[in-house]
Amino acid sequence: MGMFAVNAFLLLLLAIIAVVALRVHRLFALVMLSGAFSLTAAAQFVVLDAVDVAFTEAAVGAGISTVLALATLSLVPREEKPHAIAPLPAIIAVATGALLMVSIGDLPQFGAADAPVHVHVAPDYISGSAEKIGVPNVVTSVLASYRGYDTLGETVVIFTAAIAVLLILAGWTRAPYRREDEDRDTQGTRSIEDKQEDAG
């Protein structure tokens, strides 16, 4: 009963944040809401015993993404342009959501030992992590050893994405920066928050 209450609270909070994020037009509020969404999702992952995922979600989703979005906010207008709901994407989104809801019934019970995902390679990983690799955190041994190729791929993806972004924002090294300009600008990313507080 207690677990059900925690799950219901977190999922309800996620739904409320999502709906409010759809309705809000101030971009600063939107960035804050997406950070709150990530943090709530991280709490949900902790409840599901996926602490490594929760850690990543809190650090990347709620932390650095919010900071990067705030830095971007200093370059764009404060308000989203008002626009009507586009019918085709709305229909696709609702239909996909409905399909997912229907398919929930076919999922195995949460935590069931005979679920397909738990009878394939998982038993080998769980026993091998302690016996062969000697790493108590199974997530680390799967990520870095059993699935080392995948993690190498992920790292290369991050590397490539960063190179692409830096190429798009090229010119940032060629400009003759002056100290007072930069100091004012990093304050600028902060001052949006102050202005929003004044306005709201």
Binding site: V67, A71, S74, L75, F159, A161, G171, W172, Y177, D185
Partner: peptide, 19 residues
């Protein structure tokens, strides 16, 4: 390094635009 590079790139962009 990627996260720092991205933040510095975005934050330095405003200076660049102003210049």
């Amino acid at each position: 390094s990627v996260m720092v590079a991205l933040f510095f790139a975005f934050a330095g962009r405003l200076t660049h635009i102003r210049l």
